[in-house]
Each structure stands twice: as structure tokens, then as C-alpha cells.
Measured scan of single mutants.
Amino acid sequence: AQASVVANQLIPINTYLTLVMMRSEVVTPVGIPAEDIPRLVSMQVNRAVPLGTTLMPDMVKGYA
């Protein structure tokens, strides 16, 4: 199964992502692939992302 990117903490709206904020986990539904974690660093979330939430492409500015 493919691992997705999951929030490792509460990520406030407009926060620039860093490695410590994200982890990879096999979840349903599938979100942003874990292999894209390096690409996500320094990208901004466009909403608050609670701890344990799967990151979806529409949550990250400029990802989709």
C-alpha cells in the first residue's frame, strides 16, 4: 500500500511546511504520496491541518 503524508502536529493556516510537521503513514483515503515530502518542504498550507490529518493536494498552495 502507498504511504501518504500525515500531519505530525497541528499545522496552522498559512504555515510553511517543515520535515518535523509531516510523517508518512498508510491511510485511507490516500493523500499526497509520502515520496513528495521533500517537495512539500517550504510550501504553505491554505487551511489549519489538525494532528493526524492526511494532507490532500488541495490543502497545499502550489502543490496540485
Score class of each variant (00 low, 15 high):
1 A>M: 11
1 A>D: 15
1 A>I: 14
1 A>L: 15
1 A>H: 06
2 Q>I: 09
2 Q>R: 03
3 A>R: 04
3 A>C: 05
3 A>I: 13
3 A>T: 11
3 A>G: 13
4 S>G: 04
4 S>N: 01
5 V>W: 02
5 V>E: 02
5 V>P: 02
7 A>Y: 01
8 N>D: 15
8 N>P: 02
9 Q>L: 10
9 Q>S: 10
9 Q>R: 08
10 L>W: 12
10 L>R: 06
10 L>G: 13
11 I>V: 14
11 I>W: 01
11 I>M: 08
12 P>E: 14
12 P>S: 07
13 I>H: 14
13 I>S: 12
13 I>L: 14
14 N>W: 09
15 T>R: 04
16 Y>D: 04
16 Y>V: 14
18 T>I: 07
18 T>V: 05
20 V>D: 07
20 V>W: 08
21 M>C: 03
21 M>A: 05
21 M>V: 05
21 M>Q: 09
22 M>I: 12
22 M>F: 10
22 M>Y: 02
22 M>C: 03
23 R>G: 08
25 E>R: 04
26 V>I: 08
26 V>D: 15
26 V>P: 07
27 V>Y: 02
27 V>R: 07
27 V>Q: 13
28 T>I: 10
29 P>R: 03
29 P>A: 08
30 V>P: 10
31 G>H: 02
31 G>D: 01
32 I>Y: 02
33 P>H: 12
33 P>I: 07
33 P>M: 09
33 P>D: 12
33 P>W: 11
33 P>T: 08
34 A>T: 06
35 E>S: 10
35 E>G: 09
36 D>T: 06
36 D>N: 12
37 I>F: 04
38 P>D: 11
38 P>Y: 10
40 L>G: 01
41 V>F: 11
41 V>A: 06
41 V>Q: 11
41 V>P: 03
41 V>E: 13
42 S>Y: 11
43 M>H: 10
43 M>F: 13
44 Q>T: 07
44 Q>C: 03
45 V>F: 01
46 N>L: 12
46 N>E: 12
47 R>V: 06
49 V>H: 02
49 V>A: 11
50 P>D: 11
51 L>E: 13
51 L>T: 08
52 G>F: 14
53 T>Q: 13
53 T>M: 11
53 T>N: 09
54 T>F: 02
55 L>G: 01
55 L>K: 00
56 M>S: 12
56 M>I: 10
56 M>P: 01
56 M>R: 10
58 D>Q: 11
59 M>D: 15
60 V>K: 01
60 V>L: 14
61 K>Y: 14
63 Y>W: 13
64 A>Y: 03
64 A>G: 13
64 A>F: 04
64 A>I: 12
64 A>V: 06
